[in-house]
Computed example of a mutant assay.
Amino acid sequence: MCNLGEGLYERAMEKGMERGVEQEKRNSERKDREAALETIKEGLFFKQISRYMKLSIEAVAEIAKKNKLI
C-alpha cells in the first residue's frame, strides 16, 4: 500500500475507534439512567440511588422528573 493509502487507512481506523468509544459511552450512560429509573420506581431514596449509582442527587431527580415520577 502506498503512503497515502496507509495514512488514509490509519485516519479511518482512528475515527472508527473514536466513534466506537463514544457509542459505548452513550450506551453505558443510557444503561445507568435505566437502572436509576428502576431503583426510583422501587422506592429507594434519591440519596441512596445517588450513592450507589455514582450520580448526583440532581441527576437522579432529573431522571425522575423526565419520567413524571415527581
Rank of each mutant, 00 (worst) to 15 (best):
M1F: 02
M1V: 00
M1P: 01
M1R: 04
M1E: 06
M1C: 01
C2T: 15
C2L: 13
N3T: 14
E6G: 12
E6L: 13
G7K: 12
L8Y: 12
Y9P: 00
Y9V: 11
E10T: 07
R11E: 15
R11C: 08
A12Y: 07
E14M: 03
E14Y: 04
K15L: 09
K15T: 04
K15N: 07
M17S: 11
M17K: 15
E18I: 03
E18N: 08
R19C: 00
R19Y: 00
G20F: 06
G20L: 05
V21C: 05
V21Q: 09
V21W: 11
E22A: 06
E22Y: 03
Q23E: 11
Q23R: 15
E24I: 10
R26L: 04
N27V: 02
S28N: 15
E29P: 06
R30I: 04
D32W: 02
D32E: 09
D32T: 12
D32I: 14
R33V: 13
E34R: 01
A35N: 13
A36V: 15
T39L: 06
I40H: 04
K41C: 02
E42P: 00
E42I: 00
G43L: 04
G43S: 05
L44N: 08
L44H: 11
F45I: 01
F46W: 15
F46R: 12
F46T: 14
K47M: 09
Q48Y: 10
Q48D: 15
Q48V: 12
I49H: 02
I49R: 03
S50V: 05
S50Y: 05
R51K: 14
R51P: 01
R51H: 10
R51V: 09
Y52C: 10
Y52P: 01
Y52W: 08
M53Y: 06
M53S: 08
M53L: 09
K54E: 14
K54H: 11
K54I: 04
K54Q: 12
L55W: 10
L55F: 15
L55D: 08
S56F: 07
E58F: 10
E58W: 07
E58I: 10
A59C: 09
A59V: 09
A59F: 07
A59G: 07
V60G: 01
V60T: 01
A61W: 08
E62S: 11
E62V: 05
E62L: 08
A64F: 02
A64C: 04
A64I: 04
K65Q: 08
K66D: 06
N67L: 10
K68R: 09
L69C: 06
I70L: 05
I70E: 05
